[in-house]
Simulated scan of single mutants.
Amino acid sequence: MTLPRLLWVPAFLGFAVIVLPVIGLLGRVEWSRLPALVTSDAALAALGLSMQTAACSTLVCLLLGGPLALVLARADFRGLRVLRSLVLLPLVLPPVVGGLALLYLLGRNGFLGQWLDIAFGLRLPYTTAAVVLAQTFVAMPFLVVSLEGALRTAGERYEAVAATLGAGRWTVLSRVTVPLLLPGIGSGVVLAFARALGEFGATIAFAGSLQGTTRTLPLEIYLQRESDVDAAVALSLLLVVIAIVVIVVARPRAVEGLR
Rank of each mutant, 00 (worst) to 15 (best):
T2N: 10
L3W: 13
P4C: 08
R5P: 15
L7F: 13
P10R: 08
F12H: 15
F15Y: 14
F15V: 14
V17P: 12
I18M: 14
P21C: 12
V22L: 11
I23P: 06
G24C: 10
L25I: 15
G27R: 14
E30D: 15
E30L: 07
R33C: 12
L34P: 11
L34H: 14
T39G: 06
A43C: 11
S50G: 13
Q52E: 10
T53I: 07
L63C: 12
G66P: 01
L68Q: 10
A69V: 06
A69H: 08
A69T: 06
L70Q: 15
V71L: 09
L72V: 13
R74S: 02
D76P: 04
R78E: 11
L80H: 13
V82C: 14
L83G: 06
R84Y: 12
S85D: 10
L88Q: 06
L91T: 08
V92A: 07
L93E: 04
P94E: 10
P94V: 14
V96P: 05
V97E: 04
L100K: 14
A101R: 09
A101S: 13
L103H: 07
Y104S: 12
L106G: 08
R108N: 15
N109F: 08
G110E: 10
L112C: 05
W115Y: 12
W115V: 06
L116M: 14
D117S: 14
I118T: 14
F120P: 03
L122A: 12
R123E: 10
R123V: 09
P125Q: 11
P125D: 08
T128D: 01
A129R: 03
A129G: 05
A130C: 08
V131H: 02
V131Y: 02
V132R: 03
V132G: 11
V132L: 09
V138S: 03
F142V: 07
L143D: 01
V145K: 02
V145C: 06
V145F: 02
S146L: 03
L147T: 10
L151S: 02
T153C: 04
G155N: 11
R157S: 01
E159L: 01
G168M: 11
R169A: 07
S174C: 02
R175C: 00
V176R: 02
V176N: 01
L181T: 00
L182I: 01
G184V: 00
I185D: 00
G186M: 03
S187T: 09
S187M: 00
A192P: 02
F193M: 01
F193D: 00
A194P: 05
A194Q: 05
R195T: 07
L197G: 00
G198S: 07
F200L: 05
F200N: 05
G201V: 12
A202G: 09
I204Y: 03
S209N: 05
L210Q: 04
L210C: 04
T214Y: 08
E226H: 07
D228C: 02
D230S: 15
L239R: 07
L239V: 14
I242F: 14
I244A: 09
I247M: 11
I247L: 11
V249T: 09
R253W: 04
E256I: 10
R259P: 00
